[in-house]
Simulated assay, not measured.
Amino acid sequence: MDAFVPIPPEWTNKATHAYEFCCPNCHSSSLEAEKVWLNRRSPVLTEDRRRKWQEFYYCHCGSVWWAWSSDRPPKDITTVPID
């Protein structure tokens, strides 16, 4: 699954907006999602002129949800250690 393909996958059509950055059904984090797609074709500009995108998640419980990239909590961002 390529999260950056330009055409949205079919499963994103049934997504619901999650107002907290987790699955609205089972409350799993975005890190536990089975599939991810980022809608980078339609960025939205915030009041301070920063871009935000819709992030779509296919949860392991079968729910599909989306949230704004700007709503992502810092703990959901993983870093790769540099040796």
Score class of each variant (00 low, 15 high):
71 D>P: 06
79 T>R: 07
69 S>V: 14
14 K>W: 02
75 K>Q: 11
79 T>D: 05
30 S>C: 12
26 C>G: 03
69 S>D: 07
51 R>G: 14
23 C>H: 07
4 F>R: 15
80 V>Q: 11
7 I>P: 00
63 S>V: 05
81 P>L: 02
44 V>E: 06
15 A>L: 01
49 R>T: 13
40 R>D: 01
42 S>Y: 08
41 R>Q: 14
68 W>T: 09
28 S>V: 06
82 I>C: 11
7 I>G: 00
34 E>M: 04
1 M>S: 11
27 H>V: 04
1 M>Q: 07
66 W>I: 05
50 R>D: 11
32 E>P: 01
17 H>M: 09
46 T>I: 03
15 A>F: 07
26 C>R: 02
58 Y>L: 10
1 M>T: 15
2 D>F: 12
4 F>D: 10
30 S>Q: 11
24 P>H: 14
55 E>Q: 09
49 R>I: 14
55 E>F: 08
16 T>I: 14
78 T>D: 09
28 S>Y: 04
37 W>Q: 09
14 K>P: 01
39 N>F: 00
26 C>P: 00
48 D>G: 14
51 R>T: 15
63 S>A: 15
60 H>V: 13
24 P>C: 09
71 D>W: 15
19 Y>W: 09
19 Y>S: 12
77 I>F: 03
56 F>G: 03
16 T>R: 15
67 A>L: 04
25 N>Y: 06
67 A>W: 03
68 W>G: 04
29 S>K: 05
24 P>G: 11
18 A>P: 04
21 F>S: 05
30 S>E: 09
43 P>F: 04
5 V>E: 00
42 S>G: 07
5 V>Y: 00
73 P>C: 10
17 H>P: 04
70 S>D: 07
12 T>C: 12
20 E>P: 10
44 V>G: 02
79 T>V: 10
10 E>C: 04
51 R>N: 14
77 I>W: 01
47 E>F: 09
30 S>N: 07
23 C>Q: 06
69 S>F: 12
26 C>H: 01
66 W>P: 06
9 P>G: 04
49 R>E: 07
51 R>C: 13
73 P>M: 09
25 N>F: 08
14 K>Q: 08
28 S>A: 11
12 T>P: 12
59 C>D: 00
27 H>C: 08
39 N>S: 02
6 P>F: 02
5 V>G: 00
42 S>F: 07
41 R>P: 08
75 K>C: 06
36 V>Q: 01
21 F>P: 03
52 K>M: 07
6 P>R: 01
8 P>M: 01
33 A>M: 07
8 P>A: 08
48 D>M: 14
42 S>M: 05
15 A>Y: 03
5 V>N: 00
18 A>H: 05
44 V>M: 06
10 E>G: 05
3 A>C: 08
